[in-house]
Nucleic acid binder design. Structure first.
Length: 729
DNA sequence: TCCATTGACGTTTTT
DNA sequence: CGTCAATGGA
């Protein structure tokens, strides 16, 4: 067997990982070290060299994007159909298992997936029904509590609340929530994983079947696994399975949502015969960027240890810009991007990364002003839009009328005279009898519990859905979708919105019909016994689709540091490098490794850059309405200053900067007018607080102009001219 | 039932 | 400061 196509493109460490004969393999793959390549080549190695049946391999990722990429690249390398391979996300695989074994898992055949918004709505309703104060018991927090418990594998009965009243209350909500979900056949994301784990625990025959079949398990982004995923994996591996995991403890940035970096270390303890391979050669960034990143991350304790290196060029120093305020920062970044583009580079080679989503606003503003196209990651996705979810809710009810989440969503949308009062009555009835709303609605009418008008309206809704159900039974998915939109008269509900918004909503609905039309039942879903409709709805929940915006347009990329993981750009800006913002204040205050996770986040951000990395911070930033002064991020101090180059605006005393858009200083009396500098270099000045000094330099423009003064008593300081109130002597 | 005003809140997010 | 959701009057 000629294996050169599998091994030639690999370096020595990668080769060792791909060809390892040890039972288990742990690949510590640094950023940009070719971990996906190793995973794919291992997969191909197993099949082509070790002659493992494709049916015996399970490859697990965290995102649909990664799963898609893996399947794509695997089919290229293998040159055969990848259909028999199990490649998917943890959730996708759990979902598939539950579909195939719904009986053993104790689920109804037509169970539905609740996305996180559905889950929150349901919880809000439960909290209200319990007569609790929503301000004190926010649904968001209940959701957080329940998901965290489920991520740890805990049901309400497992939770020790002792005499802690707050925990006891959340446990009660958790129980009530479970009742609702069980009654309606609803499964949230965390539940998919938990049920899949319980399937292993409670159905030894099922577990045994998969243990025999899936002898090779490949796991990507292992540092992101949570407790339940790890437990699930361990059980599946059993005594004979072979596990190949790829991860990077230095890139673990999701601890706050249950990911356990410790799993990387536990892996060596819990699994026997683990070969550890480090991938440290980096194919992405310049030597300088890597050196700075290595220095930063070395401040973390208890790492597995890894040092990135490259054969490539050293590259430029890391730029550091000390902005006066956040406007100045945005102006600077956009100016740099303008230059980059003027030099003939593409806009989509540049990315602006920030810690919090709110920071994107200013950059958007300045990019807009400069007419530079941009794209912000992380907005609402297609299947999360209200109009899409409304339309899908009708379909969900057709499939499973017990789906209370869907019922509540559309029972009065468009308005059909089923007001709050009527719905409350239905809820009370449902709760009393422990039945879904749909059945309660029927019961209320039969028992004449509703006023004539309300009864009529509710009957109308029931008739509408039963009518749809009977008429559309044999229609194609696309026609069903269109039929539901037409019959429900959903469009009329959006008519009251501003015309522009309505237009996009209607357009999205047309797009939804197109998507339904184009939908092909995936073979693995067919195998699991899913109907086209079931499969379509599950896909809508499990992969909510791309965020808006065309990826291939030539756009500057704006995103949080978190969503940048896995991506790379020639030019990267990390903005807001201030203590309190990044690292975030809450991470500084809280204990439990939060600060180290922030440092890893910074490391992730830095290692996104191929050619040029630019860090910036603002000395003054308006946050929550008030101005805050902060120190530059401690992370900057953790990088060798020899690798950094401080950038100052290109302003000199000889050729004064003429602002493109002259603006008067906001406060009167402080600034200077026109192009005239109020002071000469070397001018002796007096400051209210710092006393006497000498002007050393100017920088910045307009109201942001700063002046450097050597004070006799206070030393050298940069001051904002507009606020400094300096007087010439 | 709808719109406007008020008030609370202000990490990070995929499935 | 800016956003979003909840509330209350018309």
């Amino acid at each position: 067997m000629d294996v050169s196509h599998l091994l030639d493109p690999l370096n020595e460490a990668q080769r060792r990982a791909v060809t390892a004969e040890d039972r288990h393999v742990l690949v510590l793959a640094g950023a940009g070290s070719g971990k996906t390549r190793v995973l794919i080549h291992r997969l191909a190695w197993l099949i082509q060299v070790e002659h493992v049946s494709p049916l015996g391999v399970l490859a697990v990722t965290f995102t649909n994007k990664a799963a898609g990429e893996m399947r794509e690249r695997a089919s290229q390398l293998l040159q055969v159909s990848t259909r028999p391979l199990w490649i998917g996300t943890f959730h996708g695989i759990a979902h598939r298992l539950l579909r195939m074994h719904w009986k053993e898992a104790g689920l109804p055949e037509a169970f539905q997936i609740l996305d996180s918004e559905d889950q929150q709505r349901l919880l809000r309703r439960i909290i209200r029904e319990e007569g609790m104060d929503e301000a004190h018991w926010p649904a968001r927090q209940a959701q957080w509590f329940i998901n965290a418990r489920k991520d740890e594998g805990e049901r309400p009965r497992h939770i020790e609340h002792g005499d802690h009243p707050v925990t006891a209350t959340w446990v009660r909500i958790y129980e009530r929530y479970e009742d609702y979900c069980n009654r309606g056949g609803l499964v949230d994301f965390a539940e998919l994983l938990l049920r899949a784990h319980e399937l292993w625990l409670e159905q030894p025959a099922v577990l045994d079947h998969y243990r025999r079949r899936l002898q090779h398990l490949l796991i990507d982004e292992f540092q992101d696994t949570n407790a339940i995923q790890y437990a699930w994996l361990r059980m599946l591996a059993g005594d004979t399975g072979r596990v190949f995991v790829v991860g990077d403890d230095d890139q673990s940035i999701y601890g706050w949502r249950g990911a356990r970096v410790e799993n990387v270390q536990h892996f060596m303890r819990d699994f026997p015969d683990v070969a550890t391979v480090r991938l440290e050669q980096n194919y992405r960034s310049t030597g300088t960027i890597l050196e700075a990143a290595n220095a930063l991350i070395s401040h973390n304790q208890g790492r597995m240890g890894k040092k990135l290196w490259t054969e490539g060029p050293e590259g430029h120093p890391v730029q550091l810009y000390a902005a006066y305020n956040e406007q100045d920062e945005a102006r600077f970044v956009v100016e740099q991007i303008r230059q980059w583009i003027d030099e003939g580079r593409r806009a989509d080679e540049a990315a602006i990364l920030y810690r919090t989503t709110a920071q994107s606003r200013l950059f958007e503003e300045y990019l807009l002003r400069e007419s530079i196209p941009y794209r912000v990651y992380g907005g609402l996705r297609f299947f999360e839009r209200v109009e899409i979810k409304d339309a899908l809710a009708y379909l969900r009810l057709l499939l499973n009328p017990d789906d209370d989440a869907a019922f509540e969503r559309v029972v009065n949308k468009p308005t059909r005279a089923i007001g709050d009062k009527t719905v409350s009555l239905l809820r009370a009835q449902a709760r009393e009898s422990g039945i879904p709303l749909w059945q309660a609605a029927g019961a209320c009418i039969d028992q004449k519990l509703l006023a004539a008008r309300a009864a009529n309206a509710v009957q109308g809704f029931i008739d509408l859905l039963t009518g749809m159900h009977e008429r559309m039974r044999d229609w194609t998915l696309g026609n069903q979708m269109q039929g539901v939109i037409d019959d429900s008269k959903l469009a009329s509900h959006y008519e009251k919105e501003p015309p522009e918004r309505m237009e996009t909503r209607l357009e999205n609905l047309r797009e939804l019909v197109n998507a339904a039309d184009a939908f092909v039942l995936p073979p693995e879903d067919a195998d699991a016994g899913l109907s086209e409709l079931q499969s379509f709805l599950s896909h809508a929940a499990l992969e909510a689709g791309e965020t808006q915006g065309e990826q291939w347009d030539d756009c500057v990329q704006l995103m949080t540091l978190h969503s940048a993981k896995g991506l790379e750009f020639p030019l990267v800006f990390i903005a807001g490098m201030e203590d309190g913002l990044f690292p975030h204040q809450r991470s500084i205050e809280e204990s439990g490794g939060r600060l180290e996770e922030e440092r890893r986040l910074c490391y992730v951000g830095m290692t996104r850059a191929r050619e040029q990395l630019c860090l910036s911070y603002a000395e003054v930033r308006r946050m929550h309405g008030s101005e805050s002064h902060s120190r530059p991020s401690r992370f900057i101090d953790e990088m060798p200053s020899s690798l950094l180059r401080e950038i100052r605006p290109r302003v000199s005393a000889e050729r004064p900067y003429v602002p493109a858009r002259p603006s008067a200083p906001k406060r009167s009396g402080g600034g200077f007018k026109g192009q005239e500098w109020p002071f000469r270099l070397g001018q002796a000045v007096t400051h209210r607080k710092f006393g006497e000094g000498t002007v050393l330099a100017f920088e910045g423009s307009g109201e942001h102009t700063r002046v450097q003064v050597n004070f006799d008593a206070a030393g050298v300081k940069w001051l904002v001219l507009a606020y400094a109130h300096l007087e010439a002597r």
